[in-house]
Design a binder for these strands. Structure first.
Lengths: 400, 400
DNA sequence: GCGATATGTTCGCGCGCACAACATTCACGG
DNA sequence: CCGTGAATGTTGTGCGCGCGAACATATCGC
């Protein structure tokens, strides 16, 4: 807004090309007739735009098989079968999962590597990723290399420097993952890194349960708690890309002590450990224990159910503040909070209504559409973002 | 993002015209040479664009008086001396202040009407505004009527329906101020209404201490507490335009009771009444009492100083949560909180550092640039927004 | 087969900006 | 006082882009 650049005539071409590519990426193959309607431009323009996208190797047209109705059948525009693809990576506590993914979200190949008993170090993760990239490039069935690599990491990420600030569950601190990957993958291959909660939201936003929502909060609770936020249809990152780090917002100064040194952090109320403590469970791995609490609750175990309900009320309270601050249309509860919503949705809603300023529309509470793959899919969206924003970005070598 | 429309060739003209007008509006008269540099377009294009803006009656060129340096002096482009203007209105508890304001922020005329011992009713306010509009139109020195009326109201506002939901200090509830004004001003004159905190932020954003900031929070504390939020360079409104209503976020469930029925709302910690209670002051009008507390603190009164410091710590804590959530670059403290920052800035900063997740850049704390006029100036910005977004919007009757 | 219908394709038009060449206006120096 | 250089305004040409009309093509129903 401050230093917005002036527009030149070709900006509109870029914009319209990006628009078509975006529709095809999100909704799969579309007819030219449908594109004409959606964009509201003339048939001739759609023809020219699609022609360009074909020339860029991004989409392909198939002659219609007919049978769709009266009139000449419209050409079908879909992702190019040998078009660009990216490698998406999800670095988790136990595994590093990678996949080659094409425009439209097609999964071309996948690999999952266990990082052993302990989480991978940044160097080990970079090694695994580099191997996976080579493997998946070969196994993708595409003739060229991937156009980018997108990595999801459960921690704070500086997208500019490609550094991981703190990733508690991995035991990382100030890890320059970007440099490690560049050293292994070369300067040619662009690498982007994002926070897992933010990327999960991105996945839900582009093809999941946040589609078409301009204002969404994705609250994810595991051992830590974080939020992805979308506002005005775009992800909210903040100045340093650290927006949504609400796990250590203090809910109650007289609350239980938190490992961060403060008292009453949100995490101590709705994090996995809080649930386990309330339910009287201990032991590892935490995730399985949490699932056990949910199973017990569903089976009617009183203590487990009470624990879930207690967490649910805290979730509602936390959401109250978030809703007051952001006034979102929808809130998606991910991670362990999905189970909380399923089992104790009434308690969440009740607490939310109690704590939220009375607003026009009630907030919609939703489950994520994608489960364990959401961060991976989000990493794919992130890696594709540049191309989708400007399909002409890498067109230097085309004869035209 | 979801249903973004396709761009047509004339969109770029609109965009560039808006860009020039925006620069002139924000920075005052500029030379064509400077515009060429800022926009990065060719001299001929700037010439054509300015020619169009002149034709629209929005700007005027003055032949340079010379003396600026070597070379042919560049034409100076400034707001048109008989160009469009708006009427900005600030409905406050004690007064209704109105002003005729032109492009560039020039104040052409002003009127302030006391609403008597009690705040004006919606009908009374509408009457006062209608009178002021007529008066200021006559006294503006411009030949035409204003192009819009922008009204600031201290309460929740639905911008779509132009309704005021709740304005506690005015005693309004579900007041259809838009309809009342339309009945008095006619259908011709567009009316826009906004919340005072949001509009104050708008003023700071466009010509105050939030200029050039893409991520800002404007926390305003008077009797009530609210926040205006800017993210990605644009105001965050939320689904129903109620974003930033954080006065009743619960800070501590065991805290003091709030008039809203809950306990430990933020307002009970940093609202004016909290400060007065801590300082052992009572009586009316509240605003003067608050100023008295500040005066006492500055004079060295122990109790007053302690009260201010206590509030300062709560402000820091509240900001911690906001900063974690939004990761803004800057926070502006308005209303009574300006005094708190001035007197006990150290306490605010200290508490903020304690409660905020350790981030890359420290948050900048700032005072508002505009005092009592900020809501009025914001209302002006709001009223101008349509024209600035698209200078061609009202061009039907021009011969061309 | 034939008309109706829907869509793809081609071509000329207007608009918007860049660029180059030319015109204008200043400061500076002799 | 006038010439020179520098910075800017002005004009004309070229190119890219979408629109719209006219024409070509493909399917359906009879």
């Amino acid at each position: 807004m401050t230093a917005s650049p002036a527009a030149r005539p070709d900006a509109i071409r870029r914009h319209n090309l990006a628009l078509i590519l975006d529709h095809v990426h999100r909704d799969g193959a579309l007819t030219r007739a449908e594109l004409t309607q959606r964009l509201g431009v003339s048939r001739s323009t759609i023809g020219a735009l699609v022609f360009d996208l074909i020339g860029l190797g991004l989409v392909e047209e198939s002659v219609p098989s007919g049978g769709a109705g009266v009139g000449r059948p419209s050409h079908v525009v879909g992702p190019h079968s040998d078009g660009p693809y990216i490698i998406a990576v999800d670095v988790d506590v136990t595994h590093v999962t990678s996949a080659a993914i094409g425009i439209g979200g097609a999964e071309l190949a996948r690999s999952s590597v266990s990082s052993g008993p302990d989480p991978a170090t940044p160097e080990a993760a970079a090694d695994i990723i580099a191997t996976a990239v080579a493997e998946l490039t070969a196994g993708s069935g595409r003739s060229g290399p991937p156009i980018a690599v997108g990595v999801s990491v459960p921690g704070t990420v500086d997208r500019r420097t490609l550094t991981v600030g703190v990733a508690p569950n991995l035991g990382w601190r100030d890890a320059h993952l970007g440099a490690l990957l560049r050293a292994r993958l070369g300067e040619q291959l662009p690498v982007v890194i994002g926070n897992d909660a933010d990327l999960s939201l991105l996945a839900e936003l582009s093809r999941g349960n946040a589609r078409g929502c301009d204002d969404v909060v994705y609250l994810i609770g595991r051992v830590g708690v974080g939020a992805g936020i979308v506002v005005n249809g775009a992800p909210l990152r903040g100045r340093d890309g650290r927006a949504g780090e609400i796990g250590h917002n203090v809910v109650d100064t007289t609350g239980p002590p938190c490992h961060c040194g403060k008292h009453g952090c949100l995490e101590t109320y709705i994090g996995d450990l809080a649930l386990l403590t309330l339910a009287g469970r201990h032991g590892e791995p935490i995730e399985e224990q949490v699932q056990a609490v949910f199973a017990d609750s569903r089976a009617g175990d009183e203590r487990a159910l009470r624990a879930v309900r207690t967490v649910a009320e805290s979730v509602g309270q936390a959401l109250g503040s978030l809703v007051n601050t952001l006034n979102p249309q929808r809130v998606i509860l991910g991670g362990s909070l999905s189970g909380v919503l399923e089992i104790a949705g009434a308690e969440v809603t009740h607490a939310l209504q109690q704590y939220a300023f009375d607003a026009g529309h009630p907030v919609e509470l939703a489950l994520p559409r994608f489960g364990i793959d959401s961060a991976l899919l989000g990493a794919a969206e992130l890696a594709f973002a540049d191309l989708l924003d400007d399909p002409l970005s890498g067109r230097m070598l085309l004869p035209r």
